[in-house]
Nucleic acid binder design. Sequence first.
DNA 1: GAGCACTGC
Length: 727
Amino acid sequence: MPQQFWKPGTDKPRILEDEEGGVVFFAPSLSSASSSSSRFGYASIGSQRQRLPVYKYRTAILYLVETHATTIIVGETGSGKTTQIPQYLKEAGWADGGRVIACTQPRRLAVQSVASRVAEEMDVKLGEEVGYTIRFEDVTNPAATMIKFLTDGVLLREIMDDPLLTKYRYVDSFGSKNLELIWKKLEMVLFCVFPGMVADLLEHIQRRRPELRLIISSATIEAKSMSDFFQTSKKHRGPEDHEFVPRKVPAVLSVEGRGFNVQIHYVVEPVSDYVQATVSTVLSIHDQEPAGDILVFLTGQDDIDAAIQLLAEEAHASRKISSGLIVLPLYSSLPRAEQDLVFSPTPRGKRKVVISTNIAETSLTLEGVVYVVDSGFSKQQFYNPISDIENLVVAPISKASARQRAGRAGRVRPGKCYRLYTEEYFVNEMSSVGIPEMQRSKLVSCVIQLKALGIDNILGFDWPASPPPEAMIRALEVLYSLGVLDDDAKLTSPVGFQAAEIPLDPMISKMILSSNQLGCSEEIITIAAILSIQSIWVSGKGVQKELDEAKLRFAAAEGDHVTFLNVYKGFLQSGKSSQWCHKNYMNYQAMKKVIEIREQLRRTALRLGIVLRSCEGDILAVRKAVTAGFFANASRLEVSDLIFLFPARLEAFSHNGMYKTVRGSQEVYIHPSSVLFRVNPKWVIYHSLVSTDRQYMRNAMTIDPSWLTEAAPHFFQNLRRPDPIAH
DNA sequence: GAGCACTGC
C-alpha cells in the first residue's frame, strides 16, 4: 500500500526550525567542507589544521579554560574539536613540566584513531608525547606522554586506584598550581551508566582539587542541563576562593560543525508498519532522487531481515526500480566479513542501501550517505528492579537521537532525512533526551564502584539523574548477600575490596574469589571470561540443527558452565584454530576475546593474591565456586501433584519444565539454547534471566540444594521470612 | 524449541 505512506518528493521539503536550537546543520564554505587530505594535497598539516572550524575559537577556548574550572564546548561532529583542542592546550603550555592532558572517548576505536591522528599532526611517535590507554593496551610513556587519550572505563579504573588522580599531579618548581585536564564527551555523560559516574566523580574531584580543569564536549541539547548540574552542585561550597582560582560557573562555548544542510521530511499521516514504510520510502528515493547512498535505521535483526526481504520482493515486482540497488544489513552480531561490506565503495551507477540498527547512529560512520530513513524506534534496555529482569524492548527514540540520525545524511554533501513519523509527533510528543541509562539499568556494578571510590552515601549522591530507589535497594541487597558490603553498607575487607578490583559483575567476582579456596581458579576464570561475552556460538539462524549437534559434542551433564570448559579445552587443543571454530559452529572472534579477557583476569587474580590452580577435572569444586557467586539465582523444578497419583509415569508427566526461583517464586524456564533444555534437573542456578513470552534462564547449571545454605547461610535463612521485594 | 540495541574495564 504505498499510497498510505508519504511519498518523498510529493510534498515540499522543509528545514526544521527547532525551538531548542538542536539541529545545527551548518553549511560551510567549500574550503572547510572537505576532510580529505587529498583535497589539500599541497597544504601543510599546519594550514590544514587552521582550516578546521574550531580554529577560529582557539583563543576563546584557551581563555575560557584559563579562567573557568569547567568549560562546556557545544558543537556538532566535524568541527575538529576532538583532535585540535588537546593540541591547543599543549601549545599553550598546559602540558609543560610533566603535566598531562587527558582526553576521554567513549569507544576503544575512537581512542586509537584520534590518538594516532594527533600524533601524526604533531609529527611525534605514538606512545611518546601522544599516547593512549584502552583495555588490554597501554601505549603511553609516563615519562614523556603529555596528551593521553583513554576510554571512560579506563579513567574510572584510574580514579578508583587514585581517587584524586594524584598520579597526574604536577608540582612545579614554584609550588603553585597543579593542572590537568579531562576532556569528556557529554552525550555519554548523560546517557550511559559508567560515563555518567565519571562526570559526577570528576565534579567531586574538582571540589577537592579546584585547580583541575574540565572541558566537556557536548552535543547541543544537553549543554544547558549539564551546565546547571555543575553550577548547582557547586553552589553550597561556601565563600568564593581567592582570585587566581578559576571561576566555578561553567563557561559554555558553541562551535559550529562541518555537516551540510539536511532537509527533514516528515510523513503526513502516522505509519502503521514502519518496515513497510521503510521499503516504500527507499524505493521512491531510489526512483526519484539523484545518486547517493541510503542509510535506514530500524531496531534489530528481525526488522532488518524483514525489510530486506520485502525490499527484494517489491523491487523484483518492479524491475525498473530495482536495478542498481545494493541492499546490505548492518548490526553488531553480523559476522565481521559481512559487516565490512558496508564500507566498500559504491560502484558507479549503483546505489547502496544500508539497513542498520543503532550501531550506525554513533558507533560507526558510513561515507557516501546522502539519504537517511529514520523509523523513529530503537531497542532499549529496561530494568525492572522488582523482578530483577533486564529487558530489551522496542521504544521510541528521543529528539537528540533523531537529530543524530539525521546528521548522518549531511557528511559529504547536503542530504535529506525522511522521518517515518509526523512533524506534530516530533515537536509535541517526542521526548528531548530520553530516559537516562542510569534509570534503566541494574546498579550492582555501579554501586560497588562508587563504594570502592570511597563514596559511601550513595542515596545522597548528587546524580544528574537519580536512579529508582528500588533498583538501589536491590543492588545493596545483592552486594550484602555476597558479603561484599557489611551491615553499615561499607565494603568488606578483603572480599569487598577484591571484588571491586575485578572488572566484572560482582557475582562473577565473588565466584572467582571463592575459586581460590576451592582450588579451581583456572577453570573459573575461563567460565568468567566466557560469561562476560555475548555468545561463543555463531548466530543460529539457518544452521540451527548443525549448531545443536556441535553443542552436543561438548555438552556436559552438569550444564552450560561445564560445557564451556569443554569448549575452551577443545579450542586450546586445536591450537586456537579458526577452522576448528568454523567446523564447530563457534564464533572465532568471540573465542579470541575470551582469551584476551581471560589473560586480564589472570593478571588481576595474581594481583589479588589468588593462587592460579587447576582442579584437574574436579568438577564438583567448579560447581561450588559458581554457586558461591550465583546462589541468589537458584531455582527449583515445579513437580506436579500428579507424581503422587501416577508414580509409574513419573519421568514423562511429572513436570512441564517450569521452575520457581528460590528468591522470588517467579515462574521461569530453561532457555532452549541451554544444554539442560529438556533435561530439567530438579535444582539449577542460572546466570541471567531473559524475558520474552516466558522468563528464560540463560546458562544453567545443576546443583545440590545443600550447597546454597552452605554458600550463603544468611541469605537463605532470611528467605524464610516474608520477602518485602517479592511482591 | 528461542532470539541477541550499544558501549566499557
